[in-house]
Design a protein around this nucleic acid. Sequence first.
DNA 1: TTGACATGCAGGTAAATACCTGCATATTGG
DNA 2: CCAATATGCAGGTATTTACCTGCATGTCAA
Lengths: 111, 111
Amino acid sequence: MNDANPKADSVFKALGDPTRRALLDRLYERNGQTLGELCADLGMARQSATQHLEILQAANLVSTTKRGREKLHFINPVPLYEIYERWVRKFETQRLRLLHDLKKQLEGDGK
Amino acid sequence: MNDANPKADSVFKALGDPTRRALLDRLYERNGQTLGELCADLGMARQSATQHLEILQAANLVSTTKRGREKLHFINPVPLYEIYERWVRKFETQRLRLLHDLKKQLEGDGK
DNA sequence: TTGACATGCAGGTAAATACCTGCATATTGG
DNA sequence: CCAATATGCAGGTATTTACCTGCATGTCAA
């Protein structure tokens, strides 16, 4: 009776935190960064960042490999695409896209 | 330094719970349901469901209107599309779609 | 009007979450 | 080898979350 899909759960929960979204953006800009690099300028202790990265890994949004004493992090966009297939495409209509484009156009004037 | 986007936060957090995803699915099947209808078969107290619906509303995924003593709930897919624009499209590549289709095809055999 | 029905409001608890600190381990470079 | 560097491990705390129960309010229909 419950859509207790653990996959969707882990991905949405992973994305539900600004620090983790920032980490994904950083990895998008440059893939394969070390823990230390990713921690820099995050404004929190290393161990906190580590935990965030573990959550991203559990959601399969990030995968890692070790190079010597360093841990390299790589982004994996597939879960995002699967969310799209399940949670966006389902609600997608021609009208929706048009509405979105119109909104963007209107916002473009204001900003 | 932090992508503390309250909009993304509210939407992802709203979607990060199986009960709330189930509610969205139910509203997709039949829009405009009352609180009582949505509570049925959820396996939790009415007030708990109410709180979940409030969270969906805060994320702008659901809007409501009152008809007499009833409260009607309507789904709003726009935030989902905005997530797509920000978090899927960005990582989208030709290769990705191909990979996804391939995977689906392979899974189709097994199941 | 009044009783039944739909929903709102006000707490209260257990578990999960997002941080932290302190110490341990493993790797590299000189 | 050994000191500096990168990361892992083991807790500990405050806040948030997901539930609950009990009672109040508002609306409909006979």
